[in-house]
């Protein structure tokens, strides 16, 4: 592996009151890969994703991103957040049109209206929702909403895309589109970290991180899945 890892976690812990939600002694993640974050509900997947998205500061420990220690100050976080986008399990769509939702990221980054419009068209096309721009986002079906939120993330061309249960409650056609988009991302240089309680629909693609009660668990012995290897005192997902 050349250069620093994309993420490096050192003694990262997150407590909600007295409850320990996340406890990762050491973990490195490399760029350009699809990672599957697998674990039951309440295992800490969403918490880890929010930490990696720079939305939730850990209670203790050090998070490094591309070789630099993350400082949890607004001014320092903004450029990092502009490289990493998190897609929530139940994505929130603004009470606006689909196009306005997808254009939000480019717009807050100061993109000119013409460039933002082009990004909207490309992104909606990528998720199979060409011609949906004028529709009201709130009037879409669950699968369409998930695809719009994916298009909204694609519109900002993130270096890292974090997805929290992207196929949960999604109809089959939408799930097929989302899977296809996720598969295509590493080739475009986007690292994907995908949380799911059931790896079934995306089995066989990418590396596996298993979480249990907030801690990284050893990989499955069988099943042909790639698991998290133990590299000295650091878990490496470069398998």
């Amino acid at each position: 592996m050349t250069g620093p890892p994309l993420y490096r976690l050192d003694g990262v812990r997150k407590l909600y009151g007295d409850r320990l939600a996340l406890d990762i002694p050491a973990l490195s993640l490399r760029e350009g890969t699809v990672y599957h974050l697998v674990g039951p509900n309440g295992s800490g997947k969403s918490t880890l994703l929010r930490v990696l998205a720079f939305l939730l500061p850990p209670t203790a420990g050090v998070l490094e991103y591309r070789g630099g220690r993350v400082e949890w100050r607004e001014a320092a976080l903004l450029p990092l957040r502009r490289e990493v986008t998190l897609l929530h399990q139940a994505p929130y769509l603004f009470d606006r049109s689909v196009a306005e939702n997808v254009a939000y990221g480019p717009r807050v980054r100061g993109a000119d209206p013409g460039a933002a419009r082009r990004r909207v068209v490309e992104s909606l096309e990528a998720v199979g929702l060409r011609g949906f721009g004028d529709r009201k986002a709130r009037e879409l079906s669950g699968g369409e909403r998930q695809r719009v939120s994916l298009a909204r993330a694609l519109a900002v061309s993130p270096r890292v895309l974090l997805l929290d249960e992207p196929l949960s409650g999604v109809d089959k056609p939408s799930a097929a589109v989302i899977r296809e988009v996720i598969r295509s991302l590493p080739a475009r240089g986007t690292t994907v970290i995908l949380a799911t309680h059931d790896r079934g629909p995306l089995r066989g693609e990418g590396d596996l991180l298993r979480l249990s009660e907030g801690a990284l668990a050893p990989p499955d012995a069988g099943g042909g899945e790639t698991g998290v290897g133990s590299g000295g005192d650091h878990h490496h997902a470069d398998l």
Binding site: L55, L78, R81, R82, T85, H88, A90, V108, A153
Partner: peptide, 11 residues
């Protein structure tokens, strides 16, 4: 989710 959504989109 409104504020985190805006923040993660670069706001």
């Amino acid at each position: 989710a409104i504020v985190p959504t805006a923040l993660t989109l670069g706001a």
